[in-house]
Design a protein around this nucleic acid. Structure first.
Lengths: 154, 154
DNA sequence: TATTTAGTTTATAACTTTATAAACTAAATG
DNA sequence: CATTTAGTTTATAAAGTTATAAACTAAATA
């Protein structure tokens, strides 16, 4: 594959990653910025390079970059005697996706427990279904702890 | 707890579950309908009961109910000689949350593989981080299969 | 001290989503 | 066959989101 082809594919992948983060609740421009910083060979972009590369206004860039920084998705470094900000992806916890699952799983478990707790008939169709889901989620919760330890040791 | 208190708490929980599904990308009314069908003692509601209980217009109810049905979140039954539709929660696969994690995990793994594949320098900071994430996700993928078998047997 | 550079802030335009009212349809009842 | 019931469809109002232009600020250079 020629370098040009490769770079074109990288740019396509930036859009694809943008759409992924879009679905995760980020704004479109935020997704594309994350994509850019993830995919391209240059892993550190200045403010101006980002606006040029993604064809977005300075104000969009400014607002979205600030937002991504607050969310701890990206960070910037500055160099003494240089007014530019150099943006790059923040080193994420590699277990992020697992942790996210665990948080959601915990939240859903608690909701379902509350639902059952408030049912007049604890043997209703839904109460039984929810008890089943809670049982599964608690089983996974226990075992995921073990799995993580196993992974870290290996 | 008095029955009245309990019912008030159920109604509050309907709203809370509504917000949860909102965050999952459902429209607010859709979330509240799911909440209603999950939480209340009556686990089967007619169209009119839903519009009255949630104070929503007939057209909102009609559109959202149709949408939830297409998404296979709810279903309705009809009774011969009765024009009403009786809506209820669809019996979900109890492993839904696990499956959802698996789907997302697979998608992210493939994206990251594509990212690394297109990098000029496979040892760049990001390439290394992503390789690490892929390794973790593949480890979990393998082990989650085993976990499910273990759960089903028990 | 005037000008340029690097971004930030604010007001608003453009678009998308959500919810409704009102008109409509189709089946059942009087 | 006229009316009521149960919901659907359509047009639109209301609200929320996203992106921009233009005015602004603060630091660095000329």
């Amino acid at each position: 594959m020629s370098t040009e082809d490769r770079i074109q594919k990288q740019k396509d992948l930036v859009e694809k990653i943008g759409r992924h983060f879009d679905r995760e609740g980020f704004q479109p421009i935020a997704g594309r910025i994350i994509g850019l910083l993830m995919v391209m060979d240059k892993e550190q972009y200045t403010f101006d390079e980002i606006t040029e590369e993604l064809h977005i206004s300075k104000s969009s860039a400014s607002n979205v970059l600030r937002n991504l920084e607050i969310r701890e998705m990206i960070e910037y470094i500055t160099i003494p005697g240089d007014r530019k900000k150099y943006y790059r992806l923040r080193q994420q916890n590699a277990f992020e996706l697992i942790d996210e699952f665990e948080r959601k799983s915990k939240f859903v478990t608690e909701l379902l427990q509350e639902v059952i707790c408030l049912k007049a008939d604890k043997n209703s169709t839904n109460a039984q279904l929810f008890a089943n889901v809670i049982d599964i989620l608690e089983f996974y919760h226990e075992n995921l702890k073990v799995l993580r330890e196993k992974y870290i040791k290996s």
